[in-house]
């Protein structure tokens, strides 16, 4: 894909760095920033590779490693934690057979911890990609993950 076309609506100014990195990452089927992406951004913004790398590495929403098609962000902040107890992490870990931070071998899911997602009134919550899932229970989580699995048959 032509990267220049992808970000042509952003002026080549350094303050567009985060917006550009978001755009490139979103267009990557594995939800991450490649070395080529970072080099491209450095050139586009007329800055060094290391400063782009430093930024991409700093922010938790960016990944420099391939991730699953679906990023699960489970809220572990105080309210969700209090309402749910710690068990929801284990539920997801068991269903997907991965550890927190890991990616399933079929590259369908990555499980990440998140701080408060601003839906505390509906705790406990998680996000999968752009979508919020609220008032989670063990059964509800299993159902949600199952549904995504079924919609993505393994080739």
């Amino acid at each position: 894909m032509d990267k220049s076309a992808l970000i042509s609506d952003f002026e080549p100014a350094k303050d567009n760095m985060l917006n550009i990195l978001h755009r490139l990452q979103n267009k990557n089927p594995n939800n991450y920033l490649t070395t080529e992406d970072l080099k491209f951004v450095a050139e586009y913004l007329n800055t060094t590779y290391s400063s782009v790398y430093g930024v991409a590495e700093y922010y938790s929403m960016f990944s420099l490693k391939p991730r699953g098609k679906n990023i699960i962000r489970l809220c572990k902040s105080p309210v969700c934690n209090m309402i749910s107890g710690k068990s929801l992490i284990e539920v997801i870990e068991n269903v997907l057979d991965i550890k927190m931070g890991g990616t399933t071998s079929d590259m369908l899911f990555t499980l990440e911890p998140s701080e408060c997602l601003g839906h505390c009134a509906l705790a406990p919550v998680m996000m999968i990609n752009d979508k919020m899932f609220t008032n989670l229970t063990e059964d509800k989580i299993k159902e949600i993950l199952e549904k995504i699995r079924n919609n993505n048959p393994t080739q």
């Binding site: 350094k14 303050d15 985060l18 917006n19 978001h22 922010y59 938790s60 929403m61």
Partner: peptide, 21 residues
């Protein structure tokens, strides 16, 4: 402008740093 997952960037001076890329 989008943030990218850092609580500290809500602090005003840090936010400005982040805004500058």
């Amino acid at each position: 402008k989008l943030g990218a997952g850092s609580y500290l960037c809500g602090e005003e001076l840090t936010l400005l740093e982040s805004l500058e890329g």
